[in-house]
Design a protein around this nucleic acid. Structure first.
Lengths: 248, 248
DNA sequence: CGGCCCCTTGATTCTGATCAATCAGAGTGG
DNA sequence: CCACTCTGATTGATCAGAATCAAGGGGCCG
């Protein structure tokens, strides 16, 4: 919680500018958005599947997640959200929420009225596109998770997830080149990768003894990015962060 | 291939009207879209990850899929596409494709220029929203697959997939209440559910002997929808096909 | 100090993978 | 019409990665 906090509105601007340079009046329109912030403890449900939200929520500080449950009570974490992410942006155009959204750590959240966002989209088509793109980027991450969880053995799977988190956190200034705060329990990581927390524990140990990661407390350090990347077969293309080769 | 074929343009209109009633001029705008159709054999790559497409492709007839590969050569099928689906709609706003798209069966595809679609979106904001929603619905299915593949044992997992296919095919008139053409090999189903084709074969046998499905040739029949639904823990909410309970 | 949450360890079990063939049907060419 | 081939479905035997069951251990908080 010692993040250098941007105002919620600036957080959104920075996020959208990752892929699209904004004009002044567009930035102003975002600055004018009314965002109501709240603070949550860890592990609190924010929205539930089936809900029909009338606002979108923005992660300002902390980690959040989307999850789904089977009737047997097994939980799959569908997405991890970090500051700048808008977990339920989809609810702007899908009336029913199909996921549960919850805080993982203590969180600061911002809420934006759908009506305000729809207004924004109508007045600023480029912003509409930028938001659309946000939902597409998030879908792309889900696709990569499907590959990762479906086809990679536990060891590589976890390596991949850590790679992703490092890159995403770096992109919002929450990680130095090799170290980042990761206050996510092993059980939660297990739910994200479709395995038991026991097995997660053992594999994390293996990653540690192999020198791919080291961690104390809630912090993960990556001593050898190259090695971790290889273990995770990590290719950041799917994050769509920067057009890597601007060939046109 | 004996589907009663709509023209590509009418296919899009029907698809979008699933969730949003279109105005006449909007329908006309879609009818005026220029769509170039091509025919493909089965198992042909249509687009590859890393591509920067300048058109979107529409499935007019046949089955297609999106897949990703690990460097070990394992394949995860990310999505199955049926007539009316637009596999790479995301490419409209994400410059690089992160998935491979291929035909599963012989296919008829339609191609629409990005420029035309962008034009359409600018002139008809409601169509823009409808297309946005399409990408969101597709993302929702991916999320459910992540849950399904990550948390359900093979038997229930396959049951779930068959439920989904039946409902989606019904929605486009390609399934009667209980029977549909499913020219997807067991190996492909295995790649979609993250298991071996051998195990897929055995589990399908189990489903058959339990009377949850029966199949001859490329056709699947569901004798007891209730039972299959229960086995798959299937709740169609995530398909966002119709607001089931219009409670507001 | 007790309770709780999270991490860790060990022993055992089992789902699903791997390895290795065989079989059946469709299309091809002689 | 039949041998030949290829793809997809099927079966059996064995193996392994990960789940399950069971139980400690350490740190934090009221």
């Amino acid at each position: 919680m010692e993040t250098l906090l941007l105002t919620p509105n600036l957080l959104i601007i920075r996020k959208l500018e990752n892929v699209l340079l904004l004009k002044d009046k567009e930035k102003q329109a975002i600055k004018d958005l009314s965002i109501k912030t709240i603070t949550l403890h860890s592990d609190q449900d924010i929205m539930k599947a089936g809900d029909q939200p009338t606002q979108c929520c923005l992660v300002i500080d902390g980690f959040a997640c989307a999850y789904k449950l089977t009737s047997e009570g097994k939980r799959q974490i569908i997405s991890l959200y970090i500051p700048g992410d808008i977990p339920d942006l989809q609810s702007l155009h899908l009336p029913f929420l199909d996921i549960n959204i919850a805080s993982i750590t203590p969180c600061i959240l911002g809420f934006i009225e759908h009506d305000d966002l729809r207004n924004l989209c109508e007045l600023h088509p480029r912003l509409s596109v930028a938001l659309w793109r946000e939902t597409l980027m998030s879908a792309s991450i889900t696709r990569e998770w499907l590959l990762n969880n479906g086809q990679r053995p536990a060891y590589n799977r976890i390596a991949h997830l850590i790679c992703e988190l490092l890159v995403r956190l770096e992109a919002v200034g929450l990680a130095t080149e090799s170290t980042f705060d990761m206050p996510v329990t092993q059980a939660e990581l297990a739910d994200a990768t479709g395995m038991t927390h026991i097995h997660m524990n053992r594999v994390l140990q293996a990653l540690r003894t192999d020198g791919l990661i080291s961690n104390n407390k809630n912090q993960i350090t990556v001593p050898d990015w190259q090695k971790l990347k290889e273990a995770g077969e990590f290719d950041p293309l799917y994050l769509h962060l920067v057009p890597e080769t601007a060939q046109d």
